[in-house]
């Protein structure tokens, strides 16, 4: 298996049904003569999973016969939910988590303050009802919010667009 294929299959520690490739945090895998260089990017500054991901990548590549592994981090361009692959979004939906829509595009000038939720409608990942409502802007992790579906009455999580 190529080093890229090994790295791409490593799972995210917090969303274990998603791979690093699904999440779009695996940026590059280079097979050099003496080592493999893997480049990843953090989702949020405080993401506590980065160290675990680095360990998991090194472990998986070693087990696959790549003894020397260097994991590089790039902070810019900053990760965006637009990098979650279509397959990744399907897996989120299958796990009952509404995937993110397109990330907001910002006009020039100061960051505008949104005082009332104006995000596009988020369909219910369980019953498919088109309109759902926000319960809380943050959920079990910073990247998710808590919503509920007025049709099937179920609460669910939604990966916020950033």
């Amino acid at each position: 298996m190529t080093a890229f294929a090994v790295a791409a299959r490593v799972q995210d520690p917090e969303l274990p049904w998603l791979t690093l490739a699904d999440l779009g945090i695996l940026r590059e895998v280079e097979e050099l003569a003496d080592r493999v260089v893997v480049t990843i990017t953090p989702t949020y500054s405080g993401c506590p999973a980065m160290g675990a991901i680095r360990d998991d990548l090194t472990g998986a590549l070693r087990a696959a016969g790549y003894p020397r592994v260097e994991v590089r981090t790039v902070l810019t361009p900053a990760w965006t939910t637009d990098w979650i692959t279509p397959a990744g979004k399907d897996k989120l939906t299958a796990a009952g988590i509404a995937p993110p829509g397109p990330a907001p595009r910002r006009a020039a000038g100061p960051v505008p303050l949104t005082l009332f939720p104006v995000r596009p409608q988020v369909p219910c990942p369980r019953c498919g009802a088109p309109a759902t409502e926000q319960i809380a802007a943050f959920s079990a992790t910073a990247c998710r919010e808590l919503r509920r579906c007025p049709a099937c009455r179920e609460p669910f999580e939604h990966v916020k667009e950033i």
């Binding site: 500054s45 810019t76 802007a137």
Partner: peptide
């Protein structure tokens, strides 16, 4: 600059909340 680029996205959410 890179730390700030990531941080602006986070702070936008904090301020909104």
């Amino acid at each position: 600059a890179a730390i700030a680029e990531k941080g602006t996205k986070e702070l936008t959410y904090h301020r909104e909340y």
